[in-house]
Design a protein around this nucleic acid. Structure first.
Length: 700
DNA sequence: GTTCTAGAAC
DNA sequence: GTTCTAGAAC
């Protein structure tokens, strides 16, 4: 019997339901981003019945509460109307209750108005009589603050479609799209429009921790405004300089338990896998889908909270619809097993889906190339994946899987947060490929089952070790064995936490009282825990999204100046205590820890922690960018020059004063302990050395 | 960022 | 044999 597979497996009534579903469109954007205008423009011309639920007006024209919005939205949806949720919805927590209004009968969309902050602010400042009463200079500070804490929506929150608008053109396009959806239409699912290109560079690291400082943003913006007690006189200027946060009081909510890391989605072990053998190996889709669903069902009760996700590139994928239908038939928990359309190599960055493990439909030689998923994954994983694979095995038999731990140097790890790749080899039904089973589906299905078994077992072995909570401190006298650590997999996490350390301190200095020497709204000062000189401080920027020097732009200039001033103040203090000290203030071109930090370091380099070439070169070559130069460059060119790390780190060891070369670190250290030569001329310019050196040797 | 360690350099 | 470094692991 010949039948269209798609049609055969999809219950007819389900298809009909998909048409004419009301849309719940949750707008996401700061005040002034144009949410209300967006709704009005769509509603003006749309043939769909739209209702706009606006928190600013829901209370008889005055601002209301979130529950009021929820109630109103639910009522309209029930009547079959489509709804715009017109409130900021800038973080997941704010959105979740609205997303939950969705269901099989309602499509939940997000429309993100992620326009330049300047634009939002300038609109608000000009605005009079806006419903939300968020006007004038104070608004700038609030918007600035809100945008710092924003959290872009992801499909995994429960949206079927997300539209990102980064500029007016995007907004116009989105208005058109939504205006054009007739009552019987649906819009394609997935993410549309570009995400913020500056969003984040260290996703792999960030995923280990939910942002620790999550201000429980109040629903109504005006009430927040009235709470602002900062000096208002200054905020007028902040519109252009964006240093509005200078006047913000950082509030920390007491109800956040210390160190509480809420279980967000990134903590759930997730395996994303392609359909094995059905592409190039030409395995029958109907049979393959039976095997997949059967094996998933078998492993379901072993999964715990872990998730399995079948991924395919295209929306038209037959294997996905087959599997979806069969999984639904078997009532498999759709929270722990679902299908996903997207590139398996970019699930996080493009699709917002956090997967710590991905499976590769490998070839028997475990070699890159060949096209399809295998080529894509090896390509995305880079040489690090190839090397790590090679180390484990040179070949793979059909029905087997190989777990490969990704080195942190792999882009898949750093960008996508993937910690492991599991190579799987399935049965081959393609006569033009090796080991063809020649249509023997009895054997074929057995091999395919084995393949998924090996894959899921491999995943469980990783998932089970990663979920474990780090041991409680001081529980075992003998201390943890290396083996124990390796098994529990906590080290990876610890390591990720180390990279985060500065960020955490910058966000919550009050939780790190022991280390923090000084904290203001703008900066936190602390001693470097591994000082490379007699005095070695770090001045941290307390702003989100400013991870490294490369992120610094003109709008950060006031902050950089503050950091410099704070650093100078500490130098004064130190020089007062020991007049022999001379300091440099500067940034590493490529820092190893997240969160922009200014080094304030005395030039004696007298420290037991200075051990390696890298230590030395990171403070004495062009890799160290003097703060004064950085500020000048950002002012003139809009950003700082980043020096080539590799070249500078491998430079020969030279004395920072007389420039003499030395064969190794011990000899160098012995030399610098006594070298009294004057500093090189270029260092004596522009205030790079503090206090400034006088050639004559007599201070004014 | 540090620690560990194999093997190069001495 | 000892010192030192580079690279991997954490």
């Amino acid at each position: 019997m010949e039948m269209d597979i798609d049609g055969a497996c999809k219950p007819k009534d389900e298809e009909e339901k998909e048409k004419g579903k009301p849309i719940l469109a949750i707008l996401v954007g700061a005040p002034g981003s144009g949410k209300s205008t967006f709704c009005e423009n769509v509603m003006r011309a749309s043939s769909r019945p739209w209702v706009r639920v606006c928190q600013d007006t829901i209370n008889n024209g005055k601002s209301g509460t979130k529950p009021q919005c929820l109630k109103s939205a639910a009522a309209s949806l029930k009547e079959g109307k489509s709804v715009f949720i017109d409130r900021c919805n800038l973080d997941k927590e704010q959105r979740v209750d609205f997303v939950n209004l969705g269901g099989p009968e309602v499509e939940v969309h997000a429309v993100v108005l992620d326009l330049p902050a300047k634009l939002s602010i300038s609109r608000i400042v000009k605005r009079t009589g806006h419903e939300g009463n968020l006007q004038g200079g104070k608004a700038a500070a609030v918007v600035n603050r809100m945008l710092q804490n924003k959290e872009l929506p992801k499909l995994s929150e429960g949206f079927s479609r997300i539209t990102f608008c980064r500029n007016e053109t995007d907004v116009d396009a989105a208005v058109k799209t939504y205006t054009a959806v007739s009552p019987l239409d649906t819009l394609p699912h997935g993410c549309f429009g570009q995400k913020d290109p500056n969003a984040k560079t260290q996703l792999g690291i960030m995923r280990f921790l939910k942002r620790p400082h999550e201000t429980n943003t109040r629903d109504s913006v005006p009430s927040q405004l009235t709470e602002e007690k900062g000096p208002c006189g200054k905020t007028q200027e902040t519109v252009s300089s964006s240093s509005g946060m200078a006047t913000q009081k950082i509030k920390v909510h007491e109800d956040m338990a210390p160190g509480s890391i809420s279980q967000d989605e990134s903590d759930i072990p997730t395996l994303a896998f392609p359909s094995i053998s059905t592409a190039d190996f030409q395995f029958d889709l109907e049979k393959a889908s039976d095997v997949i669903v059967g094996k998933v069902e078998e492993f379901m009760d072993k999964l715990g909270n872990a998730r399995l996700v079948l991924v395919d590139l295209t929306e038209r994928s037959k294997i996905l619809s087959l599997v979806r239908a069969k999984a639904a038939e078997k009532k498999i928990d759709s929270k722990r097993f679902f299908t996903f359309i997207g590139d398996i190599c970019q699930l996080y960055t493009k699709g917002g889906l956090c997967c710590n493990v991905i499976a590769n439909a490998a070839n028997w030689r475990l070699k890159p190339g060949g096209g399809g998923v295998n080529a894509a994954i090896f390509n995305a994983g880079g040489p690090a994946l190839e090397a790590a694979t090679k180390e484990q095995a040179r070949s793979l038999l059909p029905g087997n899987a190989l777990v490969v731990r990704l080195p942190s140097t792999s882009p898949l790890y750093s960008k996508e947060g993937v910690t492991h790749v599991i190579h799987v080899l399935g049965p081959n039904m393609n006569p033009r490929r090796p080991n063809c089973l020649d249509n023997d589906y009895v054997k074929g299905c057995k091999v395919l089952e084995d393949a998924y078994s090996s894959l899921f077992k491999g995943f469980l072995s990783i998932a089970n070790t990663q979920v474990k909570v780090p041991r409680s401190s001081g529980s075992i006298l003998s201390g943890p064995s290396k083996l124990e650590d390796e098994i529990s997999g906590t080290k990876t996490k610890t390591w990720a936490l180390c990279l985060q350390a500065l960020y955490n301190i910058a966000m919550q200095p009050e939780k790190h009282n022991k280390q923090v020497l000084e904290a203001s709204d703008d900066v936190v000062v602390l001693n470097d825990i591994y000082p490379k000189a007699k005095q070695h401080l770090l001045v941290l920027a307390r702003i989100k999204g400013l991870d490294t020097l490369a992120d610094a732009r003109k709008e950060h200039l006031p902050l950089l100046m503050t950091m410099h001033e704070v650093g100078l103040r500490w130098v004064d203090k130190f020089v007062g205590e020991d007049a022999s000290l001379v300091f440099r203030l500067g940034y590493h071109s490529v820092p190893s820890m997240r969160q922009l930090h200014l080094h304030v370091i005395s030039q004696d380099f007298d420290s037991k922690h200075l051990k390696h070439k890298k230590h030395w070169n990171s403070f004495t070559t062009a890799f160290f960018r003097d703060s004064v130069d950085v500020m000048e460059e950002i002012n003139n060119q809009g950003k700082a020059t980043i020096q080539d790390e590799k070249r500078l780190m491998s430079m020969e060891l030279r004395c920072h004063r007389c420039r003499s070369a030395h064969p190794n670190i011990p000899r160098l250290k012995s030399h610098i302990s006594s070298c009294q030569a004057p500093f090189p001329a270029d260092l004596q310019k522009k205030g790079r050395l503090v206090p400034e050196q006088t050639n004559s040797g007599c201070d004014p």
